[in-house]
Amino acid sequence: MSKFRKEGGKSAPAINTSSLPDIVFMLLFFFMVATTSKESDPTVRVIKPNGVRTQDMTPYKQKSEIDFLYLGKPLNTARARAYAEMGMEYMLFMDNVVQSTTDDIYNVNAIKRWKLDKFESKPARMNETIEGVITCVKADEGAPSGIIFDIRKELQDIDALKIAYAVNKQDKR
């Protein structure tokens, strides 16, 4: 029995933690490489429709050749009700607008300014013309298609001729 008895009550040796930072840094670098940063949190609720055979927008994001536009009902329910009474159910949210309204919610008229401002503030390495910069519309599945065509009309007027319809990627059934 004496085989299992502790001798002298020695405490367990301390674990060497000097390699912990290395492990954590490795994790950190993994996340830095594998992810892309969020543009901005929209103030409208968007549930994207599903679709198959989609195209990945990451390469365009890395080259900053894409701008995002959200279309949905305001997240704030009180505001949503107020807008609905005014006959505006679905509202736009544009990322990184220079001059924002108090609630960050816009109607279609603001698109031209937003798009041109965004084009002005592109990094110098981006050498696309405005025609080639994609406008990615993330619209709620319940939104009326008419607004999509209003957006297209606005974009056409300033010669921003590439539009993308965002969907949730679904594998083929």
Partner: peptide, 8 residues
């Protein structure tokens, strides 16, 4: 982000 690109 997944999307369909269309031209106007």
């Amino acid at each position: 982000d997944h999307a369909y690109i269309r031209s106007i």
